[in-house]
Structures are given as C-alpha cells and as structure tokens.
Nucleic acid binder design. Structure first.
Lengths: 163, 163
DNA sequence: CTGGAAATGTTATAATGTATCAAATTACCC
DNA sequence: GGGTAATTTGATACATTATAACATTTCCAG
C-alpha cells in the first residue's frame, strides 16, 4: 500500500514549517491581512510538531523568548490565524494545530492519536456529504462542523504493548 | 413533511424528563450501578431542557436547593452519568446534555442551534459509516468520535430577522 | 457486625479563556 | 508629509471550567 500520512512517519518536519509559513504569507497578502511578527511566530510555534499545542504552551514559549506576552497576546494571534484558516482549534483537547489545507475550502476532520498525540487532518468528501445530508434531513442549516476522532494511529497500533 | 424533531417544537417536556429518569434507573439497575440521589438529581437538572447545561449551572442549582455541593460533586456525578451513557459532553460548548438514546449503542451527532441553543442528538448510520471508512483508509483505529454541528435549527431559520 | 470498596465532603488550586481600557502602530486621505 | 481613524498591541484584572488530594461517610458482601 501507499506510505502512511505525514504525521505518522519520520519526515523532514522543517519542510512542513517552511511550507506552512510561505502559504500563510501568501494567503495573508491575498486577503490584505497583516501577518505581524507575533502572529507569524505563533503560527510557527503551532507548527513545531503535528501535535496540538495549548494556548498556554505557546505563551510559555513566547515568554521564554523574552517577548512581553500575556494570555490575550496569544489568544488574539490564534483568533487571527483561525479566522484566516491557518490554524484549527481542537475542541476536545482545548488545543490548536496548524491547518494542513490552508487556502483550500475544506471541512476539517481530525484523527487524534491518544498514544502519541499526533493529529492528522483529513478532507473526506464522503464524510462531509453524509453530514450535510443528515443535517438537511432535519432541516438544519449547518454552519460549522466539529469532527474529531480519538483513537490509535497506525504506528501506535503496531507497537506491541505488554503492560 | 413529517413533524420536526422534538427539541424544535413545543412538547410536553416533563414527559422527556420522566422517560429519561425511568430509562436511567433501568440501565443502572441492569449494570449494577448506583444511581444515587445526587446523580439522579444532576441527571434531572441536565434534562431540564434540550439546551446543554454547564457544570457550574448544575452546581448553582444544587446549591440553591441547599445541597452541600462543590465542583467535584458535580463533575463526579457527570462522569458517572457519562460513563453509563446517560449524558453527553458537548466539547465545543463545555456543557452537558441528556442522552437521547440511552441504552442504545450509538455514535452521537449533535445539531446545535446557535440561536436558540437547543441541541438535537441524532444517530446517522450513513455518517458513522463514512467516518469509520475514512479512518480505516488511514489505518487509524477510531475509538471515540466527537461530531458537533453548529448552525440554525428549522425554527430559528424561519424567524425573520431584520436587525 | 465488620472490613473493604465505593461514594461523598472539603479545601485548595490548576488550566483555559475574556473584559477592559490605555498606548502604540499602521493605513489612508488630503 | 500631517492629521486622523482604524488596527494592533500592552497591561491588568478577572471569569470560567476542571482537577488534585485527602478526610469522612455510606454501603454492602461475607
């Protein structure tokens, strides 16, 4: 079969970060939105890994770097990034993750490994369609979908555990 | 077309509560679980309406009734009720709602009206199937699905708004 | 009726998120 | 460029949600 999705295998993660930042700059330019230094740095921190990061983890990093940051600093940056589709909030974890499909119009679906913590963001048209259909059947006007699936990623399933 | 789902139309809500409590008693009896007075009262409070209730709202009610309650009192009761499938936590709202399909093996899907606050819990096999399929395609072992859809319920859509 | 498990009481604190207003910076029009 | 409004940031305080830890009580099986 094909290789596993990115978060689940070793890869040059710096390339992910670089790409995400480049995409973000392009998107903000196109939308006339200001990707200020703090916003960009928060995005970069969020992209440190494929694991979601809490707002206070971001805050701790900024503080460690000597930035004069308070909770609103971080939440404002995260709000901005969310509004421009650059990060997603994972409601079941109260944490944030870089958007893997920035710029594309998509409904995120997140596979969250409870063992290693990595998150894979998917776009599954079949799922979106089924959800929209179910909502429509109830005459409900869907505006925002939260779809988060906790479980075990391929790698963590294959690790034998005898504890 | 058929009538709208329960939360979206006037109904004798006391019947919902009575039914939910009766179901809960039966389920707990069957599982040898103790539906203590506090747990039962919390379940009843959660069922006051089809709107999700915050843990601290429940706490305030208990306190108002003269119960000697603290946050752990409520969270423990809610944990118990969740474990026995009697209430659900709505992650996107940090709130709790009575389970409309207690006893049935189901994956909840919640339609949350951002206007009136009512929540409809659905079981949509097509959706569950699509989600499982998408997870399987990534070799991901799904264990727990959070599916919450915010939008407008039928009633709130039809209310004309000129503000 | 007693020993152990389950449930509750109690206090304190952790973790997450906002409100508010002042100051600084930036964009924009002329 | 100079003035002005809008946006962004700084700073303080606070609100909301949730858990840790340990003492006490209640329940129930044997």
């Amino acid at each position: 079969m094909a290789s596993q999705a990115l978060p689940y295998r070793p890869h040059n993660h710096q390339a992910c970060v670089t790409q995400a930042l480049a995409d973000a700059r392009a998107i903000c330019r196109a939308q006339n939105a200001r990707l200020t230094p703090t916003r960009e740095r928060v995005l970069e921190l969020i992209w440190q890994s494929h694991k979601p990061l809490g707002a206070y983890d971001v805050l701790a990093e900024l503080t460690a770097e000597g930035q004069n940051a308070a909770p609103p600093t971080v939440y404002r940056a995260l709000d901005f990034l969310q509004q421009h589709g650059l990060v997603h909030r994972i409601a079941s974890l109260n944490a944030f993750i870089g958007c893997a499909h920035a710029g594309e119009n998509h409904t995120g679906m997140f596979l969250i490994c409870r063992s290693c913590g990595n998150v894979l963001e998917l776009t599954a048209p079949g799922v979106s369609g089924a959800i929209e259909g179910a909502a429509k059947a109830e005459s409900f006007k869907a505006e925002d979908v939260t779809l988060e699936i906790a479980g075990l990623c391929p790698r963590c399933q294959s690790e034998t555990r005898h504890d």
